[in-house]
C-alpha cells in the first residue's frame, strides 16, 4: 500500500518535467536538422578538389536537375505569366493603366515567381527523387558499403548534386522568366478586355526593369535550389529503418523543402532590397 501511495507524486513529477521537454522537442529537431545539414555541407565542401574528376557525375546530375525539369518549369511558368497578365488586366480594366501590365508581369516573374516556382518544382521533381534514391541506398546498406570502401557519400553522392544545382538553377530561372513573360504577352494581346500589343507590353518592361531585377531573382534561385538539394540529400542519408521509411523520408524532404523555400524567400528578399 505504501508503495502504491508513493507512485503518484513520481508520475506527476515526470509529467511536469516531460511537458516542457515535449514543447521544445520540435525546436530541437529543427536545430538538429540545421546542424546535420551544415555538417554535410562542410563534409561535401572538403571534397571540392575532387570535382574535376567527378565531371561525369556532375553532367549526369545537370541532366537530371536541369534538362528533365525544364519542360515542366516552362509549362508552369507560361500559365503563371498568363494568369498574372489576366488578373492584372482585370484589375486595371476599371482604372486604366493597362500599359503597366508588362512591367507587373516582368517584375513579378523575374524577382519572385520565376525563382520560387523553379525551386518549388525542383523540390517536387528532383528533391523527392534525391531523397528516395539516397534513402533507398541507406536502407539497403549501400551507404554503409561506400563507407567501408572509404568512399565518402558526401563526395560521391552530395557534391556533384550541389554543383549541378548551382549550375542549373540560373538556366531554369531564366527559362521560367522568359516563358512567363511571353505567356503574359500572349494573354495581354488576345484577351478582349486587355488588348495590349506585345511591343507596348515589352516596352514598359524594358523601360522600368533592369538587369538587377533579373539578377535578384537568380541569386534567390541559387539559394533556394542549393538549400533544397542539401536538405533532400541530408534527409535521404539520415533515413533509418526499413522500406517504409523511404516513403516517409521523401514526404519529409518535399515538405521541408517547400517550407524552407517560403521562409528563405522572405529573408532573402528582405536582404536583397
Amino acid at each position: 500500500m505504501a508503495a502504491e501511495t508513493s507512485n503518484p507524486p513520481e508520475e506527476n513529477e515526470s509529467i511536469l518535467t516531460s511537458a516542457p521537454r515535449q514543447a521544445v522537442r520540435p525546436f530541437l529537431r529543427v536545430l538538429e536538422g540545421i546542424g546535420s545539414c551544415l555538417r554535410l555541407l562542410l563534409e561535401a565542401a572538403r571534397h571540392i578538389p575532387t570535382l574535376p574528376r567527378q565531371f561525369g557525375r556532375f553532367i549526369e546530375q545537370c541532366y537530371l536537375i536541369g534538362y528533365t525539369t525544364l519542360p515542366i518549369v516552362a509549362i508552369l511558368s507560361f500559365f503563371i505569366g498568363s494568369v498574372l497578365a489576366l488578373q492584372s488586366g482585370y484589375a486595371a480594366a476599371n482604372i486604366g493603366p493597362k500599359q503597366f501590365i508588362g512591367l507587373l508581369v516582368g517584375l513579378s516573374m523575374a524577382r519572385e515567381l520565376g525563382p520560387v516556382m523553379a525551386a518549388v518544382l525542383l523540390a517536387g521533381r528532383v528533391g523527392s527523387a534525391i531523397a528516395a534514391e539516397l534513402a533507398s541506398m541507406k536502407v539497403y546498406q549501400e551507404i554503409d558499403a561506400l563507407e567501408t570502401m572509404n568512399i565518402p557519400p558526401a563526395r560521391m553522392l552530395v557534391l556533384p548534386r550541389l554543383a549541378a544545382v548551382l549550375a542549373m538553377m540560373p538556366v531554369l530561372t531564366i527559362m521560367s522568366d522568359l516563358v512567363g513573360w511571353f505567356g503574359g504577352a500572349i494573354v495581354a494581346k488576345y484577351t478582349h478586355f486587355i488588348s495590349i500589343e506585345p511591343a507596348s507590353y515589352f516596352a514598359t518592361m524594358r523601360q522600368y526593369m533592369d538587369f538587377g531585377d533579373v539578377l535578384n531573382g537568380l541569386v534567390k534561385a541559387e539559394i533556394f535550389g542549393f538549400a533544397v538539394v542539401l536538405v533532400c540529400c541530408n534527409i535521404g542519408l539520415n533515413t533509418r529503418g526499413g522500406p517504409r521509411e523511404i516513403g516517409a523520408s521523401v514526404t519529409r524532404a518535399v515538405v521541408t523543402s517547400l517550407i524552407l523555400i517560403l521562409v528563405l524567400d522572405y529573408f532573402v528578399t528582405k536582404a536583397l532590397m
Partner: peptide
Amino acid sequence: RMALVFQAGALFNS
C-alpha cells in the same frame, strides 16, 4: 583495407 561482405550483398543497384 577492410572489406565487409554484407548479408544482403549491399550491391549498388543502379
